[in-house]
Every structure is written in C-alpha cells, then in structure tokens.
C-alpha cells in the first residue's frame, strides 16, 4: 500500500513535466523557423534570391547591399 502511493505521486509529477518540455521544444522550433525564413527573406546574398527579394528588401529596409 505504501508502495502504491509512491507510484501515484511519481506519475502525477511526471505528466506536467512532459508538457513543459514539449512546449519548450515547440517554441524553440518556431524560433528556428522564424530565423530561417528571415535569413532567406532578408540576408542571403545569392544572386537569384537577391534579385527576387530586391524590392521587398528595400521596402522593409533590410540592409541588403
């Protein structure tokens, strides 16, 4: 009986812990997505991409060339 109580206690603390870390992973993943998209949209100097993005970069005032 004593052991059972102990197990229940472990389970209730374990559940929110998983939720916390999955939220943190999701937030970190979203941050990576944002940085990646902005790198492509604002900073990559490859000529083809630069030309397509040219007017947007001037209008948004990314320092692009």
């Amino acid at each position: 009986m004593k052991n059972m109580t102990k197990v229940t206690a472990i389970q209730t603390t374990a559940a929110p812990h998983t939720k916390v870390s999955s939220d943190v992973v999701a937030i970190a993943f979203a941050a990576l997505m944002g940085v990646g998209l902005l790198f492509v949209g604002g900073f990559v100097q490859a000529s083809a991409l630069h030309d397509v993005a040219h007017d947007q970069r001037h209008a948004i005032a990314f320092p692009c060339h």
């Binding site: 940085v35 949209g41 993005a53 948004i60």
Partner: peptide, 26 residues
Amino acid sequence: RHFGTLAMNMVAYTGFAFLLVVGFGI
C-alpha cells in the same frame, strides 16, 4: 518582378510571425 516582391514579403512576414508567436508562447 512584383510576384517576387509578393512571394518574398510572404516569406519575410511569416518569419516575423514565427518570432512573434515565440514571444506569445513565452
């Protein structure tokens, strides 16, 4: 030329949006 502007604005603002929702999440 302006399709490029449209596409790259969608890329850039989606990038901004991801960083904004990171702030929301925190």
